[in-house]
């Protein structure tokens, strides 16, 4: 409740923010991940550079691909017709983050920079092949979502770098869903599964699958994808995919005292089936 002392700077532009940030500083967007951690004194940055007022970082555009500014809120993404059309799973995931107050303040950029493994949007971003656009003092670069999330609360961001936007390929011809098994205390995901299927009649032409919550980071699940692709999503294929997904995440499992790793791993299989049903239903 009583954070350590820090300097506060409100930046008017990305250049200003990059110029202001110090070695011991952090960027502040919606504040819904960072401030609670500071209030518990689990983190004590000496400087906060507030990027919440930078207009160029906020908003959604849809020109061939979907581009979402870093300080766009979860609520804005969930409500966006473009996101719903081009990546329904992301709209769904952002609509399941926290509660309404959190969704109204929390931002996509802040969310992925924090890289909480049980958060919802990263799982969809990994499944759907999103790209994270980053700017630092040395210039701009882009990193695929799968490479962006490195480990528990660890990303590819270097010190002083700022996420400017996230882009996703147009997936309007996919059947896409994010299904979450919420932790009853925190409502973070015990397991969250994102699937994006390209259907050719009754046959699944290709599948993208990612799992979060049960893992230290959102994990792309090649084994489950292979089990689904080419099938008619019949029971045998779903069971094979459910088995495969447990193996896919085997090296990355996470858990807590109430919902241990082994349970979450099993639930990944259950919720993979439910995600496929949601996507095709």
């Amino acid at each position: 409740m009583w954070p350590n002392k820090f300097e506060y700077t409100r930046a008017g532009s990305v250049d200003e923010a990059l110029g202001a940030i110090s070695d011991e500083g952090k960027f502040l967007a919606g504040g819904h991940s960072l401030l609670p951690v500071m209030k518990l004194r689990l983190d004590a940055p000496e400087q906060l550079v507030d990027i919440g007022g930078i207009d160029s970082l906020r908003g959604i555009s849809a020109n061939g691909e979907l581009s979402i500014g870093a300080t766009t809120t979860h609520a804005e993404i969930a409500a966006s017709a473009d996101v719903q059309a081009m990546c329904a799973g992301l709209a769904s995931a952002c609509g399941q983050v926290g509660d309404q107050a959190v969704r109204n303040f929390g931002t996509i950029g802040g969310n992925i920079a924090h890289a909480d493994p049980a958060s919802d949007p990263p799982t969809v971003l990994v499944a759907c092949g999103a790209t994270v656009h980053i700017q630092g003092a040395g210039g701009a670069r882009s990193v695929g979502a799968e490479d962006f999330f490195v480990d528990l609360f660890e990303t590819a961001l270097d010190d002083g770098e700022l996420i400017t936007s996230v882009s996703l390929p147009n997936c309007s011809d996919c059947q896409c869903a994010y299904v979450k098994f919420p932790h009853p205390a925190s409502r973070y995901a015990i397991v969250g599964v994102a699937v994006c299927l390209k259907m050719d009649g009754d046959t699944c032409a290709s599948a993208d699958v990612a799992v979060g919550g049960a893992t230290v980071k959102a994990v792309k699940c090649a084994g489950a994808e292979a089990a689904l692709a080419g099938s008619t999503l019949d029971d045998a294929a779903l069971s094979a995919a459910a088995e495969a997904v447990k193996a896919d995440i085997g090296d990355w499992l996470a858990g807590d005292i109430a919902y241990p790793e082994a349970y979450r791993q099993q639930m990944a299989g259950v919720f993979l089936k439910r995600a496929v049903a949601a996507a095709t239903g």
Binding site: P184, A185, S186, I257
Partner: peptide, 21 residues
């Protein structure tokens, strides 16, 4: 869903509402 959990050293593991349901 509610229940306090301590570890073997007596550390409270359900110290916030993220863990205490």
């Amino acid at each position: 869903c509610e229940g306090v959990i301590y570890d073997d050293n007596g550390q409270l593991l359900t110290g916030t509402m993220q863990d205490y349901c």
